[in-house]
Amino acid sequence: MSNLGAYQSMVKVAKKVGGPKVLALITFVGGYLALRPAEAGAKKVAQEVKKRSEPCKTRGQLFQVTSDGDGDGLRDRVGDQYRVLECDGDAILIEVLGDPDNPYVPSRQFLRSVSDYPQCDEGTPAQRDLEGEL
């Protein structure tokens, strides 16, 4: 097992392109041109993932039900209170205080229609996308 064959191949290539310094320059530039777009793509993907996983601005807050509602597997009555546990897109994970069947995952729209849940939760990527279109 020797690397004599690989060394001989590199010497031949270096002679064809004008020497070892030129071969090193070609290798460096070629590597940069090949890897730079891949790096830029990876950064863009990482930014998109980070944007989607931003924290829920209403996490841990209590909200009051202001009108009776029945939807998304949840039956709300005036006076009920719920705590937001997590947000993901349009789905909100909530805990209704005093309800043994917790947790529930109603839509943001449903919560806005039956409670004092904020109309604009500017921390969510979906809401920012909607605002950008307007």
Rank of each mutant, 00 (worst) to 15 (best):
G31Q: 12
G71F: 08
D72N: 09
G31V: 08
E86H: 15
V84A: 05
R128K: 15
G123L: 05
E133Q: 05
F28V: 05
V84M: 03
K12H: 15
G79D: 03
G79M: 06
G71Y: 07
S67F: 01
R108H: 07
C120R: 15
A42G: 05
D90R: 06
S107W: 01
A46G: 06
Y104A: 00
G71L: 03
N102K: 06
A24W: 07
D68I: 11
A42E: 12
K57C: 04
Y117A: 00
E131C: 09
E131S: 05
K57I: 09
G5M: 06
V45G: 00
Y117P: 01
C87F: 00
S67H: 08
A126L: 11
L130N: 13
A24P: 02
F110N: 11
A91E: 06
L93W: 12
T124S: 12
L85Q: 01
V13S: 08
A6F: 06
A24F: 10
A34I: 10
P103K: 07
A14S: 12
Q64H: 14
E39T: 13
N3H: 07
K12N: 15
G98W: 02
G30C: 14
S9T: 14
D116H: 10
A46F: 15
L97F: 08
F110A: 08
Q8V: 12
Q64A: 08
L111P: 03
G18C: 02
P125E: 14
D70Q: 09
Q47G: 09
Q127K: 04
T66R: 06
E95K: 00
Q8A: 09
V13E: 07
K43V: 01
V45N: 02
S2W: 08
A24Y: 06
R77Q: 15
D70H: 13
E95H: 00
G69F: 02
V114I: 15
L4K: 14
R75W: 07
L33I: 10
G30T: 06
K16Q: 15
S115L: 07
R52P: 02
Y32Q: 05
V29P: 02
V29Y: 03
G89R: 01
E54R: 03
V65Y: 03
G71N: 04
E122H: 11
P37R: 06
